[in-house]
Simulated scan of single mutants.
Amino acid sequence: MRLWSIDPAQLDRAALIAGWREGLLAQKVLRGATRGYRNHPQLTRFRELDDPVLGVATWLHGLADDADRRGYRFDRTRLVRTAEEASAGGLRLPVTDGQLGHEWTHLLAKCEARSPDWHAALVPQRPRAHPMLDVVAGPVADWERA
């Protein structure tokens, strides 16, 4: 499971689609609707919120917004919170620059192998955070598993 901290606009097609699928699984886990992945470290930051389900729904709406921009059709009816609820919640999460850099390196390696043109477009860029995340100074997150 990879719930990217990177701006969905910088994710290649495979990462965007996989993120959507894995985010839906995370939503299910956080609602207690499945027994698997309950202890997955990627869920830690959402569990720290007062409303973890709203947090992951907000994250998923960020992916869906970029999917809409690209002409993909992500089914928002699968989200348990509406875009209005997500934006009204004003949820913000911190992400360290160390975590963002770690994920950027990971994304670049994946794109180099599967999406060379996307990789070439990413190389001169700097990583940007998902719209619900605020970048702060710090190391790779404790919950990250190499």
Rank of each mutant, 00 (worst) to 15 (best):
R2G: 14
D12E: 04
P52R: 01
T44A: 15
M132C: 08
A33V: 07
D65E: 15
V136G: 00
N39W: 01
R45H: 04
G55E: 04
R92I: 12
A141D: 09
A18T: 14
R70T: 11
V135W: 07
E84V: 15
R78H: 12
R45A: 03
Q99I: 10
L133F: 08
A121E: 05
T105P: 00
V56W: 01
L79C: 06
V29T: 11
K28W: 01
A121K: 05
G71V: 12
E22C: 08
L54F: 13
E48L: 15
K110D: 15
G138P: 01
R70L: 12
L54P: 13
R73T: 14
D68W: 07
G90N: 05
T82V: 08
P127M: 03
H61Y: 08
A109G: 06
A129N: 07
N39Q: 12
P127N: 00
A141T: 06
P131L: 04
K28M: 09
A141F: 01
G90I: 02
S5I: 10
S87P: 00
A18D: 12
L107A: 00
R126H: 07
E48M: 13
A64W: 01
S87W: 13
I17H: 08
A88M: 01
D51R: 14
V56S: 04
R21E: 14
R21C: 06
R13T: 11
A14N: 05
Q42E: 15
D97C: 02
H40Q: 14
G19Q: 02
S87I: 13
D75G: 07
R69A: 08
L54G: 11
R47H: 06
L43W: 03
V29A: 05
A18S: 13
Y37E: 05
D7M: 06
S115V: 04
D142I: 06
A86N: 07
L108H: 09
P131M: 03
D142W: 04
L16A: 00
T34D: 01
M132H: 03
L79P: 05
L11P: 05
H102V: 07
R76V: 15
V135H: 04
R92K: 12
E85H: 10
A120R: 15
D75E: 09
D7I: 02
A64K: 05
M132R: 09
R35Y: 13
R13V: 10
W118R: 08
C111S: 13
G55S: 08
A120G: 08
